[in-house]
Amino acid sequence: MTLSKQLFALTERFGALISLSLVLLLWEVGVSLFNIPTYVLPPPSDVFAAATGIAFGQWFSHSAATLKVVLAGFFAATCVSIPLAVAISSSRMASSLIMPVLIAIKATPVVAVAPIIIVVLGTGDMPRVLITFLIAFFPIVVSATTGLALAPPELISLSKSLKASGWRELWDIRLPYAVPHIFSGLKVASTLVVTGAVVGEFVAAERGLGYLVLFSTSNFDVATAFVCLGLLVGFSLLLFSCVGTVQARLFPWSLPKDATG
């Protein structure tokens, strides 16, 4: 292999790392070149300093508060959405009863409802989990409903000719056929739940990374807000890749052939 080819291969392999480093470098140079004040846009070096400026225990407790809401919201969205999708796909009547309600909920801007939810449910994690749930559940319902309708009609005929119960038809045929769709819904939801948790914290919280963003920016400590942002992005990506890993481990057949290698 020639040197240029090796270079290409390396660039491909570490593409994300290289482009991210470039952005950070431009940012650092740009801020000092144009004399931008730190309270408007701190350079990355200030952000790193801010990260170490707060004790690890503090970061941990804020992150844990946010993660708790993120995971609870994700769990609730999953547990509610899949049975809901099963109900919707079970009959045309159920679908015409449930779907309008879901669409109405989805059409409501959650950010606008959030203060109302806080008033109704009070402080504590519960209202934040509900807000997170409301932001994340819809894509799971929609994709699971699509997936549940995808089982080949021949297999449904086979199931009926074997006199299997409706539950067995669902469990043995319809749900497995929906697995790839359910997971794409879960992947979308996994990034939405972080947004949901932050929205909840913006409205009412005493801890958490969203709260810390509000608190630090009100003190013109933009560097700390950037650290929070970095952590939130990290959690989003982590949850997203966890969903992918669970799918690959538990349902390897549900992935396209080239993806499994």
């Binding site: 080949p152 021949e154 297999l155 086979l158 497995p176």
Partner: peptide, 14 residues
């Protein structure tokens, strides 16, 4: 006492 073979194999990939 009736077995069916369909046009497509319709096997279960899992």
């Amino acid at each position: 006492d009736v077995g069916i073979v369909f046009q497509k194999p319709t096997l279960l990939p899992w």
